[in-house]
């Protein structure tokens, strides 16, 4: 209990509350345009997706191209629940999120099992195949509306709910990564054989990462469905998985704050570029390529280091002065 209420945690809690309050106040003051307001929920959903995928890609070190598959499984489960149940929202939505998460997690186990035998690019292609299979099954399942989509989902998702889920996701995944389990997961990424010979159960931790990531992707899917009010299988295609992957890679592998910022930028960027219409995707593609080239350019990296090390040096000098 003492640990739970440590200074650091209380400070964190205060920061979370302040961010929420500031955004809420800005919203209430009518600071956001309608467009910006409509973006708040998708931003939150994308952050949940990016942070959960970063557990697989950034920390476990496996490439997954089927995150949209987990998202769609959760979305359809949760939305079928709220469409068919007649309960008040505050019971129905948490139930839907829980069920969506659990079913997605079960699929995480299913897809995690081949992951135990396959490595690298072969695993990537299996996750891609999984996503495509899920999509074509939903396309042909008349119970969930087939390719026409599932209609009439109550629009429960709002800023507050998404914010709460977003904070929970970040806290759970950060704590997992910083725990004993998280260190085990990172050790598999760094050297699987060494990890195995140190007695780390690789099978268990790989599955754990897949299950946790799938669970939160499922929740994000439920929120997504309750935001739009309609679910179409075509939204959960290969490109959606790639979009989430781009957020993780742009944010920096194995960095949760990075994923959050990248998710925010990548959701907002197309809206900012909306005025450019047809050139939007072209610019997005060019930005993507240039970012990757710059990140791996030795000259640019040394320039970046020079700029940042100046700052670090200054800080160091300040500290030294204080010491005197």
């Amino acid at each position: 209990m003492k640990q739970l209420l440590s200074k650091k945690n209380l400070f964190l809690l205060a920061v979370i509350a302040v961010i929420y309050a500031v955004l809420f106040a800005l919203d209430a003051q009518g600071f956001f345009s309608r467009q910006a307001k409509a973006l708040l929920v998708p931003i939150g959903i994308n952050i949940i997706l990016a942070v959960s995928l970063s557990l697989i890609v950034g920390f476990l070190g496996e490439l997954s191209l089927g995150h949209a598959g987990f998202m769609s499984v959760g979305a359809y489960t949760g939305c079928m629940l709220t469409v068919n149940l007649d309960l008040p929202m505050y019971i129905e939505l948490p139930l839907a999120m829980l069920m969506g998460g659990i079913v997605a997690a079960i699929f995480g186990v299913i897809i995690g099992i081949p992951a135990l035998r396959l490595r690298g690019d072969y695993l990537a292609i299996v996750t891609l195949a999984f996503g495509e299979i899920i999509r074509s099954i939903f396309n042909n399942l008349s119970v969930v509306g087939g390719s026409g989509g599932l209609n009439g989902i109550p629009k429960y998702s709002n800023y507050t709910i998404v914010y709460i889920m977003l904070v929970i996701t970040i806290i759970v995944i950060t704590n997992l990564v910083n725990s004993r389990h998280g260190r085990a997961i990172c050790s598999i990424r760094d050297n699987k054989i060494a990890a195995e010979s140190m007695g780390i159960p690789v099978v268990y931790y790989k599955l754990l990462a897949f299950v946790v990531a799938a669970f939160f992707a499922g929740i994000a899917g439920v929120l997504y469905g309750h935001n739009l009010g309609i679910l179409k299988p075509s939204t959960f295609d290969f490109n959606k998985s790639i979009e989430i992957l781009v957020m993780v890679v742009m944010g920096g592998m194995g960095s949760i704050p990075g994923s959050v910022i990248a998710a925010l930028l990548i959701t907002v960027l197309p809206e900012i570029l909306r005025g450019l219409q047809d050139y939007r995707m072209l610019i997005y593609a060019v930005v993507l390529i240039v970012m990757m080239l710059l990140n791996n350019n030795a000259k640019f990296n040394s320039f970046k280091q020079r700029v940042f090390s100046k700052k670090a040096k200054k800080q160091g000098a300040d500290l030294a002065k204080e010491g005197e």
Binding site: V57, L63, G120, D121, I242, L245, V246, V249, M250, M253, A285, V286, L288, I289, M292, L293, N295, N296
Partner: peptide
């Protein structure tokens, strides 16, 4: 490899 993959997707 992941950076190359993302670049390929960008292309």
């Amino acid at each position: 490899p992941l950076a190359v993959l993302i670049t390929a997707i960008g292309v």
